[in-house]
Design a protein around this nucleic acid. Structure first.
Lengths: 342, 342
DNA sequence: GTGAAAGCGCTAACAC
DNA sequence: GTGTTAGCGCTTTCAC
């Protein structure tokens, strides 16, 4: 098997045709004679030839690569620990793959021009909008991108995701229906209104207010990406409000799992003494000794399909659109209800 | 801000120099006059110009992209659920990023020529060697790649990872030292010797035999990638050997967590009735209600650094080398020992 | 139905 | 120090 066949012109030479014909044949163009096409394909295969995609991309000005941007906020977040992120990457990767796109992982970077003006990437999918709402509004339309997350007020760019307020309200209403009175919330930064944390908090407040409860600042604690921060949040809550009887870990299931652990270490029984509800419905949640009640973001299949379709539309020059849908409450045992689904 | 500046030659034109000079200036070449260099850089910045990396890559024949290949085996594994995989991707991604490489995720694909003959990728890092030992031996040297995992017999390609036999033996010896007599193992396919599962099983046998125990086939069960399979493995074990007093989930922590859950549902107390040890030391393991005793693969920082250095060496034309080191037993509570570290 | 030729945006001899 | 020139490997008008 000759090892020197590297370029399209080598194949052309062997087949005794021009490079244009080989190019067409390999791209299954109808403009080329069926016999010649077969012959060329056979030669290419025999010589184990593959198109040089880099060259092709340069010529046709698209790379068939989509960047997935993970906003990691901790300074040294070498290893992400929230399984939802893996489920996200993996689901998006599969969906892209079905459309013959590959996934480039951009970790801790933002959506910057170094990538999209470079022929390296055709578009972006962003997990974790963080504090970039304003920036995204600025660059909307200049480059194809989609944010995973709900619509925020004054949003001009495309996003796909469940509605935080509704999802969060569902979770808290469920806890209220179960008779819980002192419901704590563990979430991220509440100082800005352009974060998901804020709108999940709003859902929490709505549920409380509908039930006639008065929100208590002692029942609020903060946690970040790392489950460890959930641990500290619980310590803080138990110090401030030892009478709490429920925790809504609005940040993530990973934080919810850490919270359950912290509550148990404090001598409380979950769910009898304290009910816990998470957010994300990660796979492992089902097995974490107290199976976790949580909000599913409906990532798969609905969310991911919308995400990828939306981005590919933009890449192909069509306008993107904001998709918003409801999250789904998944009731297991950590909330103290009898499980009705899994 | 003029919006039409797209190419290097536009900058050259504005600066009144040739494209070579711009190219050199932007690459910080010492061959260019310091003043001209500053002037060119300033113009580039003013016009928000960025090199077209695709074109550059084509020219210099490297892409600064490394593919991470995830061998997913289930037919419809849309969403990976083992957090170790995320920790792996994330750690490798950060390490690559420090060397100015990006990470392309290849999920369920194998290390095929479509990528490395295409200028799309400079090298590969593979998680989950699967059954490709023979194939990897064949292509060793033809393309830069490194496998995460231990050395197998007759291995000619490069790999980095802890020694399965030693790691596994440590775990089982620990259980024996704690007085466990009927130690089950949950692992993958044992029908071939070119898998990690097999060598973890060998470590298990060695530990048993050193202690004078007789291996019992009823104490072996199989599990795959998905925690759910750990669940079934436990059901099977409990049916075959209801007297078991320990489970070594040699496949992964995700499976160990599912196993703990299954054991508890069967009415057994973990760790009093049944001790459990996992493999991988995922972050969440610490919080899973019975904190998980497990084997750390020493992924971060040691493993990842070796992995990336090794690959970059190969990309730069140096030979790769096999690195093998010991895993580390991390003792928490699921094994019934008093925790000595976290 | 096929080929010749131009060029995607950049780099690197080589000449001056 | 800087410019000229020739490609990297492919696609695609345009002519035949």
């Amino acid at each position: 098997m000759s090892n020197k066949v590297k370029k399209l012109s080598d194949i052309a030479h062997i087949a005794g045709v021009s490079t244009s014909t080989v190019s067409r044949a390999l791209a299954d163009s109808p403009l080329v004679n069926e016999q010649t096409k077969q012959k060329i394909k056979k030669i290419a295969e025999q010589h184990n030839y593959h198109l040089h995609l880099g060259a092709r991309n340069l010529r046709i000005k698209r790379s068939s690569v989509v960047a997935v941007v993970l906003k990691v906020e901790s300074p040294h977040a070498e290893a992400l620990s929230d399984p939802f992120v893996l489920e996200f990457i993996s689901a998006v990767g599969s969906a892209l793959s079905e459309s013959n796109y590959n996934l480039l992982l951009l970790q801790g970077k933002t959506l910057d021009q170094r990538y999209w003006c470079s022929g390296v990437v055709d578009g972006f999918i962003v997990l974790g909008r963080g504090r970039d709402h304003h920036y995204f509004n600025q660059i909307a339309g200049e480059v194809p991108f989609v944010i995973w997350g709900p619509k925020l007020p004054n949003q001009r760019y495309t996003s796909v995701g469940p509605d935080n307020v509704t999802a969060s309200r569902q979770a808290v209403e469920h806890l209220i229906a179960l008779g819980r009175k002192r419901i704590a919330i563990v979430t991220d930064d509440l100082n800005r209104t352009d974060t998901e944390a804020y709108w999940r908090y709003v859902g929490y407040l709505e549920a409380l207010s509908t039930a006639g409860y008065v929100p208590d600042p002692k029942l609020i604690a903060h946690a970040g990406f790392d489950p460890q921060t959930g641990y500290s949040a619980i310590s803080q809550l138990l110090a401030q409000a030892p009478d709490l009887d429920a925790v809504f870990a609005a940040y993530s299931d990973a934080v919810a799992i850490a919270s359950i652990d912290a509550l148990r270490k404090s001598g409380r029984h979950v769910p009898n003494d304290v009910a816990v509800v998470g957010f994300d419905n990660i796979n492992l949640g089902r097995y974490c000794s107290v199976p976790l009640t949580t909000i599913s973001q409906e990532l798969y299949p609905k969310g991911v399909r919308l995400l990828v379709e939306n981005l590919l539309n933009q890449i192909n020059g069509h306008p993107g659109e904001i998709s918003i849908f409801d999250g789904k409450l998944v009731i297991r045992q950590s909330c103290g209800a009898r499980p009705v689904n899994s």
